[in-house]
């Protein structure tokens, strides 16, 4: 056994194999960066509202309850397609505004964040942008 199987060969295969697959991964990363402009709707980022909306999304830790394109917590609904689900950006804003500060007795409820109208516009613009990303037909249906 010891002759058939040497530590130095095992080590070299580790370094070589890892390097090999790392290079493949980096090449695919490059390819991905080349091809996503046709899918990621980056032109919508020219709108300052979308960028500001992403920051509001982050600084209120929305991902701590919701998922966005399936990633996040699984405590509250998926928001990648929420604009489509609720029908419009207006409906999304109205929902966020309507949350009772003390919650709903016995039930899960989104906190009341007291956003300004401008902030609501920005969040809605951000969610609209995410809903237009080409996510390979995910989620399977409108319920997310």
């Amino acid at each position: 056994m010891s002759e058939a199987f040497t530590t130095s060969t095992a080590r070299n295969i580790f370094y070589g194999g890892t390097l090999f697959f790392l290079l493949v991964f980096l090449a695919l990363t490059y390819q991905t960066e080349q091809s996503i402009p046709s899918r990621d709707r980056r032109e919508m980022l020219a709108d300052a509202k979308v960028v500001a909306g992403k920051k509001i999304w982050e600084t209120n830790n929305c991902i701590g309850c919701h998922t966005l394109l399936g990633e996040g917590a699984y405590f509250a609904p998926e928001l990648g397609n929420v604009v489509k689900r609720l029908g419009s950006e207006e409906a999304v804003k109205a929902f966020i505004k309507s949350r009772p500060p003390e919650g709903v007795p016995g039930r899960r409820s989104m906190p009341q964040f007291n956003f300004t109208d401008q902030q609501l516009d920005e969040i809605a613009a951000f969610l609209k942008y995410v809903s237009e990303i080409n996510s390979a037909k995910w989620p399977p249906n409108i319920q997310g």
């Binding site: 701590g64 917590a73 405590f75 709903v104 039930r107 906190p111």
Partner: peptide, 14 residues
């Protein structure tokens, strides 16, 4: 759903 709400919302606990 409203356990400890709004003092420790779910996202904070998470």
């Amino acid at each position: 759903g409203d356990f400890l709400f709004p003092y420790i919302p779910f996202n904070v606990a998470r």
